[in-house]
Design a protein around this nucleic acid. Structure first.
Lengths: 156, 156
DNA sequence: AGGCTGGGTTTGCTCGACGCAAGTCAGGAG
DNA sequence: CTCCTGACTTGCGTCGAGCAAACCCAGCCT
């Protein structure tokens, strides 16, 4: 049923998980708003208003969470210039943020499979072949797709 | 940088994500305690006290969260009998709960890579080959490993 | 009968997450 | 100079997450 625990780990009642990476990861992206902001970043949203409207959170929460994500190094805040407008800032994923792609896609995939009666509203496919992709646990040497190699389609 | 949005999705400022599977998934496993309880279930913990002590939460939180996870169908509460003791209950992962393995492992992997200065404390390997595994986004047809096919080792 | 033990539930509190509403500020447009 | 817009900030109230500690309860042991 569960994973095999080797060596000292086998004694579940003695060993205690310390410095667990999952716990540390959840300290950074453990809130619903943080995850949904990341979802939007993967979808290509970069501007403050876009995040607010599309995630459906208030400006206050968006400002706070975005600041935290920038401080944690998942997003980068950088100036951009639209012609005839003043300098504004946009939020773009860093390498560290992009590395969360499997987490986000795995969540969507699980929701699609177990929480959506007739399948989810969106489908993530390979940008090249158009075939749907899966998140999975694989032995080393298997190649992974990057965000750029993926496309999002409407289901049905 | 981001994923390619096809068709109507391309107009990020018009389209709004409704019924998003990620949001629904987070309604079920969006709290830190829920994720850590799942981690423990994958490690093989089944009893109430084990969850409490190893996750480091209070009994109150554990009771509440476990009940929610049972109601959501991720865990199954079933009686078991130790010789010379009365009937007790244990919590075991259902198929639906086991399907969250990629999410949990992906979080650990990300934490290992970006939040742990010298690498994480644990390593997940293939039970057969002993080689470390990765969570990744792959085209269809790639085989995935189940919890039983994995083993946990102490790093270094 | 009374106590012990594993497996919880209840109560009372704090703190963070989040929503609503209003205010602020910079700078280009008019 | 005033207005507007994008990007926040501030204040306030609510709700859920979490802790601590006490309580409950079934049943085996003596």
């Amino acid at each position: 049923m569960a994973m095999r625990m080797n060596g000292p780990l086998a004694a579940l009642d003695q060993w205690q998980p310390e410095g667990c990476s999952i716990a540390k990861a959840l300290d950074v992206v453990g809130t619903k708003s943080a995850m949904l902001l990341l979802r939007e970043a993967f979808y290509g949203t970069t501007r403050f208003d876009g995040f607010v409207r599309r995630v459906g959170i208030t400006e206050a929460v968006a400002a706070k969470r975005l600041k935290e994500l920038v401080e944690a190094g998942l997003l980068e805040k950088r100036p951009y210039q639209e012609p005839g407008a003043r300098t504004r800032y946009e939020y773009v994923l860093t390498e560290k943020g992009r590395a969360l792609l499997p987490v986000v896609v795995a969540l969507m995939q699980w929701g699609d499979a177990y929480l959506q009666p007739g399948g989810g509203p969106l489908r993530i496919v390979s940008a090249e072949t158009g075939e749907p992709v899966r998140v999975l646990v694989a032995p080393p040497g298997t190649a992974s797709l990057e965000p750029e190699g993926l496309a999002v389609r409407i289901n049905r």
